[in-house]
Amino acid sequence: SISSRVKSKRIQLGLNQAELAQKVGTTQQSIEQLENGKTKRPRFLPELASALGVSVDWLLN
């Protein structure tokens, strides 16, 4: 799922939720909701993929 991929990649990069949120241009709460499965397809998906160094396709599939 996107939530597990985001969380595992974030941890692999040594980032906390607030640091990832800053790179993406969103809030820590938005990252938390995404990782908890409350958000399925965030509006900041391209920025998120870029910050994590992955493709949008990788996040979604």
Score class of each variant (00 low, 15 high):
47 E>I: 08
41 R>G: 07
61 N>E: 11
56 V>M: 12
56 V>G: 04
29 Q>C: 09
31 I>G: 00
26 T>S: 06
51 A>F: 08
32 E>Q: 12
34 L>N: 02
59 L>R: 00
13 L>D: 03
31 I>V: 06
58 W>E: 05
15 L>S: 04
14 G>V: 03
36 N>T: 12
59 L>G: 01
51 A>P: 00
20 L>K: 01
50 S>N: 14
22 Q>P: 01
20 L>R: 00
28 Q>C: 09
30 S>A: 15
7 K>A: 10
30 S>I: 12
12 Q>T: 09
28 Q>K: 13
28 Q>M: 12
29 Q>W: 14
52 L>W: 00
6 V>Y: 02
40 K>G: 11
21 A>C: 03
43 R>E: 14
16 N>C: 07
45 L>A: 06
32 E>T: 08
19 E>C: 05
13 L>S: 05
48 L>H: 00
2 I>Y: 05
48 L>P: 00
47 E>S: 10
49 A>V: 04
50 S>A: 15
16 N>Y: 04
42 P>I: 14
52 L>R: 00
19 E>S: 07
2 I>N: 02
36 N>E: 10
7 K>F: 08
60 L>A: 08
25 G>N: 08
46 P>Y: 12
9 K>P: 02
57 D>M: 11
6 V>D: 02
27 T>N: 09
10 R>I: 05
22 Q>C: 10
25 G>H: 07
60 L>I: 14
42 P>Q: 05
43 R>L: 15
58 W>P: 01
18 A>F: 13
59 L>Y: 02
4 S>L: 12
61 N>W: 11
39 T>R: 09
21 A>Y: 01
48 L>R: 00
34 L>Q: 01
7 K>H: 08
37 G>S: 05
34 L>Y: 04
26 T>H: 04
61 N>Y: 13
17 Q>V: 13
22 Q>T: 10
27 T>K: 07
45 L>E: 02
16 N>D: 11
44 F>N: 07
29 Q>Y: 14
42 P>M: 08
6 V>G: 02
18 A>D: 11
2 I>A: 04
38 K>N: 12
25 G>S: 05
35 E>Q: 02
50 S>L: 15
38 K>D: 13
35 E>N: 03
1 S>W: 10
53 G>Y: 06
19 E>R: 04
3 S>R: 07
27 T>P: 05
34 L>S: 01
3 S>D: 06
58 W>N: 03
30 S>V: 13
43 R>Q: 14
43 R>V: 14
11 I>M: 13
28 Q>G: 06
27 T>L: 06
15 L>T: 01
23 K>I: 14
5 R>K: 12
26 T>N: 03
41 R>D: 11
12 Q>P: 01
45 L>H: 01
31 I>W: 00
16 N>W: 03
45 L>S: 03
23 K>E: 07
7 K>E: 08
1 S>H: 10
12 Q>H: 09
43 R>D: 15
47 E>V: 08
23 K>F: 10
47 E>R: 13
43 R>H: 15
12 Q>G: 08
60 L>G: 05
17 Q>K: 08
2 I>W: 07
20 L>F: 04
33 Q>I: 08
56 V>I: 15
50 S>I: 14
33 Q>H: 12
15 L>K: 02
1 S>L: 11
55 S>H: 08
16 N>P: 04
38 K>E: 14
16 N>M: 07
8 S>D: 11
18 A>P: 05
52 L>D: 00
55 S>N: 07
6 V>C: 08
13 L>C: 07
17 Q>R: 15
5 R>T: 05
8 S>L: 14
40 K>S: 12
43 R>A: 15
15 L>R: 02
38 K>P: 08
55 S>F: 04
28 Q>H: 09
10 R>S: 04
58 W>D: 04
32 E>P: 00
1 S>G: 11
41 R>A: 11
4 S>W: 13
35 E>C: 02
29 Q>V: 11
12 Q>V: 07
42 P>H: 09
39 T>A: 10
28 Q>L: 15
50 S>Q: 14
11 I>P: 01
9 K>I: 11
55 S>G: 07
2 I>C: 08
5 R>M: 08
10 R>F: 01
8 S>Y: 15
22 Q>G: 09
9 K>W: 04
32 E>N: 10
11 I>E: 11
7 K>C: 08
25 G>K: 06
3 S>F: 06
7 K>T: 09
51 A>L: 09
42 P>L: 10
24 V>Y: 01
54 V>E: 05
50 S>V: 14
12 Q>I: 08
52 L>E: 01
53 G>S: 07
55 S>W: 04
6 V>I: 09
2 I>T: 06
7 K>D: 01
21 A>E: 01
3 S>Y: 06
37 G>C: 06
34 L>V: 13
39 T>E: 12
41 R>Y: 15
32 E>V: 12
51 A>D: 02
10 R>N: 01
11 I>H: 09
12 Q>L: 10
14 G>L: 05
10 R>L: 02
23 K>N: 06
44 F>A: 03
33 Q>S: 15
39 T>C: 15
55 S>I: 03
46 P>H: 14
19 E>D: 11
22 Q>W: 10
13 L>Q: 07
5 R>C: 05
11 I>S: 07
43 R>K: 15
26 T>W: 05
52 L>M: 05
3 S>G: 15
24 V>N: 03
24 V>Q: 02
